[in-house]
């Protein structure tokens, strides 16, 4: 049978001191880009560390590319690529050293040509040690490495946070190129999605260790709308329709569920960031 899901989490649970992640059930179909969003400390990195076997779950099952990660052989691990918020390699290495290291590490799977092309595209210097690379360059190198061993699943953990818009734009292009192959899947975790939001097929939202939803982005964005109301107008709205609100001196800004408000109420489009902010604030009150 053909494998259809890139990621399957079942009852995944992990306790770290006072923080509890999960239980999380999540299914990511292959061939798509998923934005894994939430506040700092919501549990995004913990989830990704669990996926990468850097942490061991207290409970639950993790399947990547249809296989339990406990049964992964080194050969199978070549199908998984990952980029963290920084490139965790000895800083005395030059680009050539890094390339040699990966050539030896990935053996047959390593694609020297792809790597060289990406390096040229990013204009990365090959004589400097990575100590002298800027943060953006380190991330570009990390991404080039991740994309050069024919992986089917790419995990990005806060990889583009705090980078300038031009570099983020490059990343966007690379992700879209990567996803041209329908066997490829991307999971991007971030507390700010910004431009990456545009290309995400699904949004998974995690809050205080709990997965609030995992939905197709288009449907998600179409479900909600934002508008400004007076306090009297707000009183007439069904309480269930109100996702979150920002009261100010001259009225209230509210995010509403379109299906539960009258059709003639004009609502503006929402962004994923709006949804995130209003949901978190809505819960606080």
């Amino acid at each position: 049978m053909k494998m259809q899901n890139a990621i399957e989490l079942q009852g995944l649970k992990k306790r770290l001191g006072n923080f509890v992640l999960g239980p999380i059930d999540l299914i990511v179909p292959k061939g798509c880009i998923v934005g894994y969003i939430g506040e700092n400390g919501a549990g995004k990195s913990t989830t990704i560390k669990l996926l990468l076997n850097l942490m061991l779950p207290d409970q639950g099952e993790i399947k990547l590319l249809g296989k339990d990660i406990q049964e992964f052989t080194p050969q199978m691990k070549k199908d998984i690529a990952y980029v963290f918020d920084d490139l965790y390699l000895p800083e005395d290495m030059t680009l050539k050293n890094v390339q040699n290291f990966h050539r030896k590490l990935y053996g047959q799977a390593w694609q020297d040509k792809t790597f060289s092309e990406l390096i040229t595209r990013f204009n990365l210097p090959d004589n400097k040690t990575i100590k002298h690379f800027s943060r953006g360059m380190r991330m570009q190198l990390g991404l080039a490495l991740a994309l050069s061993h024919g992986a089917k699943l790419l995990l990005l953990d806060e990889a583009t946070s705090g980078l300038d818009p031009v570099i983020r734009d490059d990343v966007l292009d690379l992700l879209l190129e990567y996803i041209q192959n329908e066997d490829h899947t991307v999971l991007v975790s971030s507390h700010i999605l910004s431009d990456l939001e545009k290309v995400a097929d699904y949004i998974a939202f995690i809050h205080k260790g709990q997965l609030l939803f995992m939905e197709a982005k288009d449907e998600l964005v179409e479900q909600y709308g934002i508008t400004s109301l007076s306090k009297e107008q707000l009183a007439e709205i069904d309480d269930k329709a109100i996702i979150g609100k920002r009261p100010h001196q001259f009225g209230v800004e509210v995010m509403l569920k379109r299906s539960l408000v009258p059709d003639d109420l004009e609502l503006e489009k929402v962004s994923i960031e709006d949804i995130m902010v209003y949901m978190i604030k809505g819960e606080r009150k």
């Binding site: 798509c32 966007l172 879209l176 545009k198 290309v199 995400a200 097929d201 699904y202 982005k217 288009d218």
Partner: peptide, 11 residues
């Protein structure tokens, strides 16, 4: 391809 060029999601 269309998604890539328009920079929208495949869905």
């Amino acid at each position: 391809l269309l998604a890539k060029e328009l920079r929208v999601s495949v869905i």
